[in-house]
Design a binder for these strands. Structure first.
Lengths: 101, 101
DNA sequence: CCTATCTGTAAGTGATAGCTTACGTAAGCG
DNA sequence: CGCTTACGTAAGCTATCACTTACAGATAGG
C-alpha cells in the first residue's frame, strides 16, 4: 500500500479529477474552480484537501485567496506506479510466449 | 469521459486492484484468486466482471472453470491516458517558466 | 476599526458500492 | 444418469463518500 495507491484512488472521483485537470493547465483559486464546476465551493475545497493530502497538488497563499497548482512530481509517482504494472504485464507475456513454443 | 476513465475508477478499489495484480503475473481461475484473498468467491467474481467490462482483463473457459488474464492493451490505454495529464503538466510548467523570466 | 471577500471546517443527509448468503446453471466423472 | 465442482447472479445489508447548508477565521481596504 504505497502512496501512489492513494493518488490513484484520489483521481477516481469524476469531479475531483476535473478539479485536478483544471489546475494542471493553470494554477487557480478555490472560487475560480468552483465557478467552473457544477458543485458548491466547499465541495471544491474538500476535493482540494484530498488532492493535497496525497501530494497531487500544492497550494500557496495570495492575499485572502489560495492558489492551487498541480504537482508534477506527484503525478510522476503515479506514472511510475502504473509502469510497474506495465512491466510486470510484459514480463508475464514474455514468459507465456516461451512456454508456448 | 473516455474509456480510460473507467479503467482508472476500476483500479481505485483496493481488493479489485489486488485481483488485477494477481492476474498480471499469471492467469488464474476465480477459485484460485478467492483462496488468496480475504473476500468470498462471489466478491471476486464481481470484481472480475468490472475489470472485464472496462477491458482490463480477458477470460477464457477451461472445463468448468474460467481463467482470467490481464489485458496488456487495456493497461496501455490507461497509461496513455495518464500521459496526457503528464504532458499537459509539463506544458503548463514551461509556460510558467517563460512568463517568469 | 468595520466591513467585505475568500476560504476552511463541522454537521447532517442521500446515494453509491462492496460484501455476504442463497440460489441457479453448465461442464466433467463415476 | 446422479453427483460433484466451479462459476455467475440476485437480493439484502452496511459503510463509505460526495454533497449541501451553516458557521468560524483570516486578510485587504475604506
Amino acid at each position: 500500500m504505497t502512496n501512489a495507491d492513494l493518488k490513484l484512488e484520489a483521481l477516481a472521483d469524476p469531479t475531483r479529477r476535473r478539479v485536478f485537470e483544471l489546475v494542471i493547465d493553470q494554477p487557480l483559486s478555490v472560487g475560480a474552480l468552483a465557478s467552473t464546476l457544477p458543485v458548491s465551493r466547499p465541495a471544491v475545497s474538500q476535493h482540494l484537501r484530498v488532492l493535497k493530502e496525497v501530494g497531487l497538488v500544492t497550494d500557496r497563499a495570495e492575499g485572502t485567496r489560495r492558489i492551487y497548482a498541480a504537482s508534477p512530481s506527484g503525478l510522476a509517482e503515479l506514472r511510475a506506479y502504473l509502469d510497474t504494472f506495465w512491466q510486470r504485464s510484459l514480463a508475464a507475456f514474455a514468459t507465456a510466449a516461451e512456454e508456448q513454443t
